[in-house]
Design a protein around this nucleic acid. Structure first.
Lengths: 195, 195
DNA sequence: CAGTTCCGCAACTATCCAGTACCGGAACTA
DNA sequence: TAGTTCCGGTACTGGATAGTTGCGGAACTG
């Protein structure tokens, strides 16, 4: 039936990973197919055979970002909100978060003009984090640790928002010290029970 | 002494304003000198005679953003923190803030690679806002209204951070309802005195 | 008035890059 | 083995644009 050499599907992942690697270092507009091909050890023709063009390629790369670390079942459960929040901040997580922030910066301008990019970024980068924080905070409320009147939806955005602000706008390191400051200086005070 | 037709210095402002107008609609990379010239009713040669190139031009445009509205002496003083924060949110301010957020989005990618752009944006767009919020919050602490143990530096970043997150990342409107939610759901709870 | 510099405009060069086409070779099918 | 499709690589085309140059005219100086 189907005749000829078969397409090597494993190259897809190599190429998409190369796209993200390039986006860590350069912006959406500056990324060229040649950079991706060189990084992936592929020919440009191979890329054009699999994706319709630059936009489709980048869109696919963003969508395949791995966020299994934030699945609800894998979130920390130390018994206290402060412990849960700090438990997320292991070096691996900080490193992958830094990578995602750089990609986010490279893609921000295009998000204004291409709703598909905006949707892909939201689904792959933004929403998983906010969902995770919402889950931890809601659990603290249910446990009676946090103020039952708290605006959980708003509070769940505080850490992602301040992290992206620090990375994208202030251009300062999003490290353990920063997260600790936000947790102890903003999040926990805002959620403390009124006595 | 100096011979010949004099340079019309008033065109500088027209051209720089045109740069910002274009940046509201397109990104740093997509902006062309031709777009700026057309918008300003100028020739490309006039622009190249005044600035060394595209980077210098955009840098100058960012630096000349007007923030006189945020001078310390002009900040609201209603006697209560909530009133002060809400008093900043008149329609003019929301409109100019939206404009600045769009410019910020257009420039974000270049901030990673050009420290001059990053410095210009910080000085012209970010720092004035944070300074204003810090001033209002510090005053509330001094007045005894806010928790004296509050981390004023961290809290002053909450509103700018969540606004830029909403505009740049979530692509949702940064309007009165949003600010009210943040003020009542995050800022005021975090600053409330422990009783 | 003569000479100079600015102005808007248009023509021009040089570069970069998306996208296409093809090559020789490898992998696969019948 | 013959024919087909994929692979990495290279050459090519076409469009966009940064930056330069020159034109005709206006503004200014002496």
């Amino acid at each position: 039936m189907t005749v000829g050499r078969k397409r090597d599907e494993t190259r897809d992942a190599d190429i998409l990973r190369a796209v993200l690697d390039v986006l860590v270092e350069t912006s959406y507009a500056e990324l060229t197919i040649e950079m991706v091909a060189a990084r992936a050890g592929a020919g440009r023709g191979t890329i054009y055979r699999r994706w319709a063009g630059k936009d489709e390629l980048i869109l696919a790369a963003i969508a395949c970002t791995d966020r299994t670390d934030l699945e609800t079942g894998r979130l920390p459960d130390t018994g206290a909100l402060r412990g849960d929040l700090l438990a997320m901040l292991d070096p691996d997580w900080l490193g992958s978060g830094d990578r995602r922030m750089r990609i986010l910066a490279s893609v921000t301008a295009m998000m204004s003009r291409n709703p598909d990019v905006s949707a892909a970024v939201s689904a792959a980068i933004v929403e998983p984090s906010v969902d995770a924080y919402r889950h931890l905070i809601q659990r603290a409320v249910d446990r009676g640790e946090a103020d039952p009147a708290a605006d959980v939806a708003a509070m769940a955005q505080v850490i992602p928002a301040m992290a992206s602000h620090r990375a994208l706008v202030l251009r300062q390191p999003v490290d353990l010290a920063f997260f600790t400051t936000i947790i102890d200086g903003v999040v926990l005070p805002a959620l403390a029970r009124r006595s």
